[in-house]
Design a protein around this nucleic acid. Structure first.
Lengths: 128, 128
DNA sequence: CCCTATGTTCAATGTTTATTGAACTATCGA
DNA sequence: TCGATAGTTCAATAAACATTGAACATAGGG
């Protein structure tokens, strides 16, 4: 049996490798849009969140799947710390690559927060 | 045998029915993004294009499929005129619903025009 | 050192998607 | 009225996608 390695930082695309269609496709999924939205709100505070902070959105293994997609398209970065993985938006890279895009999407999402069942700004607190 | 009707204007969503995830999903397909991009360039001129103007992008029946998706999500409008169907971007509705979004996507696409194999501004002329 | 918490991997599942080509509908002009 | 032109519909297909649960890996605390 080949042991599988899980403890290393997964690969991320470089800034230049970020592709518009992949980014848009990532953002088109309601769960991933909610993840990105939540990460964007966190930017004002500590800028990082860990997997468990999104448990309300889907099951654990399903979240892992969505995190991988968000990472692969360059929307977010994962940092491994002990048994936790901390994520943050790759805002600088996104803004450099596609100026105004992320903000336009986030503003649009905010406008439809109800419809999209997004967490309100003050709800972004850890659940017990 | 039930005769199928093809000559009536297909249904379009109202402005309020336009949904962010559907719009982003539509724009995430390279062929549809190219269609939208080309329609956006046409805005400066006659604002309308017909199906045949996109024949370079895919086969006819495949284009019909993509047009339907673009219509269903509210990105474009179809007007039936004789044996032609004229399309235009629903810019006003889009801008009202998600301010800045369409322009941000178009600007991002323009930046990657090469990578996305989009027609240059002056190339938007009918092929013989 | 074991137990628990955190998160990943993998295989299986059912759904949606994009793409074809062939058959069809509809309109226009000669 | 016939033929050409423009585009749609439908069925088939293969690929990609989202979701699940069970098994696993990893690190930290008693």
């Amino acid at each position: 049996m080949i042991p599988r390695i899980m403890s290393r930082t997964p690969p991320h695309p470089t800034r230049e490798q970020i592709e518009l269609p992949l980014v848009l496709d990532c953002l088109s999924d309601p769960i991933r849009l909610a993840i990105v939205y939540q990460l964007a709100q966190q930017e004002r505070v500590s800028s990082e969140l860990c997997c468990g902070d999104f448990n309300g959105l889907a099951g654990k293994s399903n979240l892992t799947y969505h995190f991988a997609k968000l990472r692969d398209c360059g929307l977010m970065q994962t940092r491994v710390a002990g048994t936790n993985r901390f994520m943050r938006l790759r805002r600088e890279d996104l803004d450099a690559r596609f100026p105004g895009l992320l903000d336009a999407v986030l503003k649009s999402a905010a406008k439809d927060a109800d419809r999209l069942q997004l967490v309100a700004e003050c709800d972004v607190v850890e659940a017990d």
